[in-house]
Nucleic acid binder design. Sequence first.
DNA 1: TTGTATGCGTTATCAC
DNA 2: GTGATAACGCATACAA
Lengths: 323, 323
Amino acid sequence: MTVSRVLSNPELVKAETRERVLQAVASLNYVPDRTAGSLSTRRTGFVALVLPTLTNVNFSMVAHGLTDVLRPKAFQLLITYDNYSQQERETQIRNLLARRPEAIVLVGAAHSRGAAALLAQVDIPVIEVADDTTRPVQHAVGFSNQEAGRMAGQHFIRRGFTRIGALASQPHGDLADHRGEARIRGLEAELRLNGLSTERILRDGDAPVSYDHGAAKLGLLLDRHPDVEAVFCVSDLAAVGALMECQRRGVAVPDQLSIMGFGDFDIGRVVNPSLTTIRADFQDIGRQAGQLVLDLLGPAPPAAPEMIDVGLTLVERGSVGHR
Amino acid sequence: MTVSRVLSNPELVKAETRERVLQAVASLNYVPDRTAGSLSTRRTGFVALVLPTLTNVNFSMVAHGLTDVLRPKAFQLLITYDNYSQQERETQIRNLLARRPEAIVLVGAAHSRGAAALLAQVDIPVIEVADDTTRPVQHAVGFSNQEAGRMAGQHFIRRGFTRIGALASQPHGDLADHRGEARIRGLEAELRLNGLSTERILRDGDAPVSYDHGAAKLGLLLDRHPDVEAVFCVSDLAAVGALMECQRRGVAVPDQLSIMGFGDFDIGRVVNPSLTTIRADFQDIGRQAGQLVLDLLGPAPPAAPEMIDVGLTLVERGSVGHR
DNA sequence: TTGTATGCGTTATCAC
DNA sequence: GTGATAACGCATACAA
């Protein structure tokens, strides 16, 4: 008990005793067992984070943002990913809940029935992040993917384009990029609103999109619709792939074809021409989610569900021209 | 106790009782508390993973490789990162050990004294990964970064180049990319061995390197050493940045300047010209490390320290020409 | 086939 | 200022 006190409330222990304990701790390289501590205090210090994948930098930025805020408060992230599979997500959520996290943060708001049921009845904060969440389980921090698609459409239309296309993945069984699909639906809506054709929107290949996907599918799109003037890609990765494919085909960007991405990945800033994109600050999303976790776990938790919108920015660079 | 049995050894329970339990479990959405379970069984099911950052895809691939192997065996990764700081790494290791992981995997073999001391006396498998490890704490899975640098030098020399440069970060206090630095030392050694100058090796800017770093520092290098014929970058990210800077400056790659990277990032395959690079299969490293964890935790653990070298491959693409 | 007693390593609580 | 006791929620060992 005295050891426990020295390590958590040292001021309650006489200096001399404290020293003796600390010496023993040092010489034994004693590291307290938080498993036992958690059981006793009923506080694990875990915050669970579910990502689609670890290999997308923007999702990693969410993790970094969360860490920025939670690490100083001695929380430990419990990070998993589901490879864009709702089924896998459900089992991951179940596994995470077994660890008794004090809060759970999820990138994406599309859940299987079972996952939704699990999340609906946990007694910890649930925060869905980086997705359209008109009806979140509890709280949400993010932006509207549909709005991103609309912004892309509006920007192209402002620039005078009418033959507007897009590159996205094709949902395939359990495997789907729901957030990318939402962006495409936003674009479609905008095109229809302006009486423009949506036939140049190409959904093909499995999620998630990639450089290769962008390069390959741009080729397909150009073959099918040689008249396309502007292409929105659901991710900068696909957009950069498309841009490189244009270089290889001798298609001048933006003079012959305009390209817009989403996500503002670092690579978009460095390519030639630099990539016009729609930016969401994922690290900020992580930070805000982290702060929300702290607030919800704090002494005066907000009563109502929080819906924080970090907004979207159209970053105009060189890859989009005008008619 | 019967519930516990139903969930772990259902065959020991009468079918009817089992059904009643499962029904209760379902209706209550009961998820067993693994914190308590871990305390009782003295097995947490955690495997700790320490990365420099979550934002480097190759490190993420290590995590994915580990997950490939460990998830089917019901292990849960406990992932942290240290932002390339040894001090932070030490505190992360300490925090992780408090969770009583059954094994710990670290990307990188450079540890602070304190971290080394901690790792030296834990009674779980310790696996250092993706680094030069002539003297690992216990086990190692990876490749030689020095060898990567040597390979780069040899390739350039074979191609007839003599004015060979490189781009790397500058260690800055606690912050350093030890693995990148090792690659540079390998290159230096190779250059010296062949009587070539090492003055065109530029160490500048903080770790980790990035697209921007590559673009900016290539400019610096060209200004200082306009005669440079071939540049090795410690990471594909810097190499792609350098390549793009060449495009902007009208420096023809590979005709006027050859560029080689390290890591075989996806982006290198899609740029024009495609990037010659040195490849290490990071996902395989993760898988092998995971398998090693299973072996070491299994009934017949290997007695001697394992040192698995997954090797390096020079991937010849378009960005390196010849004299 | 099911149930009871016990212990895992901490910490809250209360006694000294 | 320090120590004794009980409890956290499971699983092991054993009894019934």
